[in-house]
Design a protein around this nucleic acid. Structure first.
Lengths: 110, 110
DNA sequence: GAACTATATTGACAAATCTCGATTCAGTAT
DNA sequence: ATACTGAATCGAGATTTGTCAATATAGTTC
């Protein structure tokens, strides 16, 4: 007898998760999560020097991670004088949450 | 006159986001998000062949991505006969949500 | 202007990731 | 046991990512 099919074929989602993955990837780093967590908890802005002091990274490395977060739109930056101040983007949490829900939607309440 | 300090120093979070980053990283890939989205929407299990048929990846590559998801605990697998069936882990969404909130907590209601 | 400071960018290198082809393993069928 | 199928693992090559040292840029102070 021939073997049965493995299963009623599952419909694989065809949506493009490229942007979703890019946003998650920007956040998926221990140092960048630390930066996001710090900004999320601070009422004030933080400057680059705050992070170079506290993280085991030198200044270019911190700038590198901040650039990734800024390119992803998760933080905003503003230069005032010599210093550059970083803030969490207003919609950072919402965008990450939405991306997560686009992949794994909340279950309908029972 | 000497320049002022850049700002009242911000307290950088000291928590370790290593595990949080690892979980996000496991999800932060277009194909893996597609797999998660498919499993989240399917009432049934999916077998590897479902994905090899629908994704532009060959069988070892699909197995590779499934292994990353399984190692992260986002999916579970069960072999029955020749086939291996994958399901979304029950707590997949909750764990990802919690990780997100650990970095960027929900704002207290106004 | 020159000297100095904070940040950004560049280039090089190491480490991790992704993809494929080939092979191996687990299970079924004969 | 042999032949066959689905899935996992291995090994190699290409791409990406993270880090540092060096340099460049923007702004301040003198």
């Amino acid at each position: 007898m021939s073997m049965q099919r493995c299963c009623p074929p599952v419909t694989v989602v065809t949506a493009d998760f490229g942007e979703a993955a890019a946003l998650l990837k920007a956040a998926a780093d221990p140092y960048r999560l630390t930066i996001l967590a710090t900004l999320a908890r601070s009422t004030d802005e933080a400057c680059v020097c705050d992070f170079t002091g506290a993280l085991p990274l030198n200044q270019p490395a911190v700038s590198h991670h901040l650039k990734i977060l800024r390119d992803a739109g998760l933080v905003t930056s503003e230069r005032r004088g010599t210093w550059v101040y970083y803030r969490l983007a207003d919609d950072a949490r919402e965008r990450l949450t939405r991306v997560l829900s686009s992949a794994i939607p909340e279950k309908a309440p029972a």
